[in-house]
Amino acid sequence: MINRIPSMELAERVREGHLRAIARLITRVESGGDPEVRQALAELYKSTGRAHVVGITGVPGAGKSTLVTQLVHEYRASGRTVGVVAIDPSSPFSGGAILGDRIRMGDLVSDPGVFIRSMATRGTLGGLARPALDAVDLLDAGGFDVVLIETVGVGQDEVDIVRAAHTTVVVNAPGLGDDVQAIKAGVLEIADVHVVSKADRPDSNKTIQELKAMLMMSLEPGEGIWRVPVVPTSSEKHTGFGELMAAIDRHSEHLERSGEITERRRQIALTRVVKVAEEIVRDNFARDSRSQTEELLKKVTQRELDPHGAAVTLLKAMKETIHESH
């Protein structure tokens, strides 16, 4: 048995930028988060809000990990420290995951100004958003200037995660025409910056033009409106990553100057509060699924009660049982 350091003590060390303390608290958060962990997080939340949070998403194979690696190099060259939360899918069968981002990010470690953490999408108590965003808070409180969240751009949870970022970067790759179509309605429209990766490939121009044409259509007239840029990058030729960092910085400045940052912060708060509320409800539902729930389900299947009515009844009953431990 090992000496288990209390979470509140770890929280103190997180404030001092202690990497091991950050790592351990992320583990505890990911494991469900007992009341003491929640308390530590609540305390540390007061020290957050300084980091610029960048969400990076795109279809599998678009080159997100490579892009993140290059982007981290750019930030480091500009003198800023960077935390990365890299999210990989879990096996739907075993719940296990192979987290492979480290393979590409290998040369980033052994730099105390960089912290990389891999996370699996596995249902950590109902969803991925809460532990991932708690991890972002921990890196923020730990003093990192920039926090990058990298996730596969499929599924509502992932969209929620990028919604909790100040700047959202969508990575598009040439030759993935149908995939671009597939995410167009979802993540494509939440992009603050578009990247076309693998820009050394001859068909990248087509992707760039398509994106620009699409963005043109949704352009609103007026002054002081953010024009979503399309940044071509190539890890093969090491081009575009400085431009990408500059575009993210410009977006950050735009948010501050236009005052949009206030609305964005409100949006982030909304996303997070709703997300946690959802989780608490789901968790509660799963916990006391025996007695009352079964009763209600029977009534719904027998058409004595409609699903909406049953849900309202359940929520009313839940009100009594929800406690602060979540």
């Binding site: 075993s94 296990g96 987290l99 480290r102 470690v109 912290f115 990389i116 891999s118």
Partner: peptide
């Protein structure tokens, strides 16, 4: 095999230094 047993597996890739691996293992906790 470990993944199929429900574990989260972080693979470092080839040719790492002991320093890189230890730092990564600490960050990944």
């Amino acid at each position: 095999a470990l993944r199929d047993a429900g574990m989260d597996v972080v693979y470092t890739g080839l040719h790492r230094t002991p320093e890189e691996v230890v730092d990564a293992a600490i960050q990944e906790d």
